[in-house]
């Protein structure tokens, strides 16, 4: 066990965990931020996507030791009231079915539109291709990303 400092959703947090603990489990088990989901544990499905210094990363395969002292943003920190353009677009397009993968989809989409204000269909496919939606809401996700980019 070792102590790590990190900034999660604007708050400085100190955690005492094994150094190889993936950020995902620090968020979920230690900090009770369960919005970030476990899907595969090997960075293949994108359900665990969070931002490190604004970039989308897979928290299931990122050990805590690699993110100490960095700024982590999770779905809970994207906005206080659901006003982030991606969250708004997700609600507007009624994207989710089961909803489990959507936090990861939203975090990937938020990173995309902060880099690319006017993503094309292929930009969206490229950016989102690492996020699996087992319910098959891909068409709504694409539409929502476009709306979010427009409103951002």
């Amino acid at each position: 066990m070792a102590q790590y400092n990190l900034n999660v959703n604007g708050q400085n947090r100190q955690v005492d965990v094994d150094s190889d603990t993936p950020l995902l489990w620090v968020l979920r088990d230690t900090l009770s931020l369960v919005g970030t989901k476990y899907g595969c544990g090997i960075a293949q499905c994108g359900a665990c996507t969070v931002h490190i210094d604004g970039k989308a990363i897979r928290s299931c395969s990122t050990p805590i030791s690699a993110v100490a002292n960095q700024k982590v943003t999770t779905i809970e920190g994207l906005s206080e009231d659901g006003s982030h353009p991606v969250q708004q677009a997700w609600i507007e397009h009624d994207v989710p079915q089961c909803g489990y993968c959507q936090a990861g989809q939203i975090m990937t989409a938020a990173a995309l539109i902060s880099d690319n204000k006017n993503p094309s269909d292929s930009d969206i496919s490229d950016a989102m291709n690492g996020n699996i939606c087992r319910c098959g809401t891909y068409l709504r996700i694409k539409a929502a990303v476009k709306t979010a980019a427009k409103n951002a």
């Binding site: 369960v34 919005g35 994207l78 909803g99």
Partner: peptide, 13 residues
């Protein structure tokens, strides 16, 4: 719209 749509977008448990 999905009654849980807002909570899903917020990452609620």
């Amino acid at each position: 719209r999905n009654v849980d749509g807002f909570n899903i977008a917020m990452g609620k448990p």
